[in-house]
Amino acid sequence: MTEALDILIFGAHPDDAEIGMGGTIAKHTAAGYKVGICDLTYAEMSSNGTVELRQKEAAQASDILGLAARSNLGLPDRGLRMEPDQIRAITLQIRKYKPRIVFAPYWEDRHPDHIACSKLVQEALFNAKLRKYEPQTEAHTVVQSYFYFINDVAESDLLVDITDVHGRKMQALGAYRTQFEAVGANNDFVATPLNQGYLERVEAKDRMLGQKRMVPYAEGFVSKLPYMVDLF
């Protein structure tokens, strides 16, 4: 029987979750939360590296962050579509791990796959709670969903102070050498936005978000639901 997760994060590609919320992941695993990542694709269309290398890098990053689970649905890279089979695959992951909280990429981003991932997860979250949808599996209602930023940043509803774990986030991202390092002493290497100072821009983004609440580093999130409190 699969152990339930506190948090399940969806990304279109291995490294998306680490870019957007690696610090938040590290902070929660250190506090004893069970956190998992589900990558929708193997990023087989990436300009550098191979699927096999990317999977090894993802496993290393998972160890650094202390993940309780990591899965890959093997959906087509650059082929994410609002199709029933793709929504079903994501829905079944939610039902398998029964998370309290789900994270997905923010719905506006320069990469079309990140946008598609966001939309697919939102559809799956709705389906997951319908007991007559795929009735051979148990329905599950996620308590809260949030959206994290990868390339582009919007106004955040919520900030997480990741100052104490920012080093672990950058270490996890450093595991993806084929993506973020200019290891181009061979004919297969191609210059991309990811290997032209991208990690420095990730760090700058975390500093910018932290500045809003006067902390060195923070990660930002958006919620479609309003926050409810008893007292302020």
Rank of each mutant, 00 (worst) to 15 (best):
V202W: 03
G74P: 14
K98I: 07
I150V: 15
P99V: 05
R78Y: 07
E52M: 09
E219C: 11
P76A: 03
K119M: 13
R100G: 07
D6A: 04
G32K: 06
S47V: 03
M208I: 12
L159V: 00
L173S: 13
L8E: 10
L209A: 09
Y148F: 15
T141K: 13
D157K: 00
P226S: 00
E3Y: 02
L225K: 02
I37M: 03
E3W: 02
I9F: 06
Q196T: 12
T29D: 12
H166W: 07
E18A: 03
I87V: 15
A69W: 02
F180D: 07
K129F: 03
D39S: 13
D16Y: 03
R177K: 10
D85R: 09
A182L: 11
D113P: 15
P193C: 05
V102G: 08
S145M: 01
F147N: 10
D188Y: 08
G174K: 04
I87H: 02
P84G: 01
A185I: 07
P84K: 00
A26I: 09
L158H: 06
N72P: 15
F232H: 11
G32T: 04
A68F: 03
A12L: 09
F126H: 13
N187V: 09
W107D: 10
M45Y: 04
L125T: 00
S47K: 11
D15V: 05
E123N: 15
A61V: 09
L5V: 01
G32N: 10
Y106M: 08
L75H: 07
A182H: 05
M21V: 05
F232R: 12
G23E: 02
L199W: 02
A61K: 05
F232D: 14
L5K: 04
T192K: 04
M21G: 10
Y146D: 02
M208L: 12
T137G: 04
E134V: 10
L73F: 02
D6F: 02
R168W: 03
I90G: 14
F126V: 15
R168L: 15
R70F: 02
T178K: 03
C38H: 05
N48Y: 09
E138N: 11
T91W: 06
K169T: 01
G210F: 08
R131K: 12
E44R: 12
L40D: 09
F221R: 00
G220I: 00
M45E: 11
L130Q: 09
K119Y: 05
A191N: 07
N195K: 03
Y42C: 07
F232T: 07
K96I: 00
V51C: 08
F126Y: 10
Q60T: 08
L209R: 10
K132A: 13
G184E: 02
I162A: 07
L80I: 13
F147L: 08
V153D: 07
E203G: 06
R95H: 10
S118M: 08
G36M: 01
C117K: 08
E44M: 05
A30I: 04
E219P: 15
D85E: 14
K34H: 08
P14H: 12
L75W: 06
H166E: 14
V183L: 12
P76W: 00
R110E: 14
L5D: 05
K98D: 11
T29R: 10
T91L: 06
E18M: 02
A204L: 12
V190M: 11
A59C: 08
E155F: 01
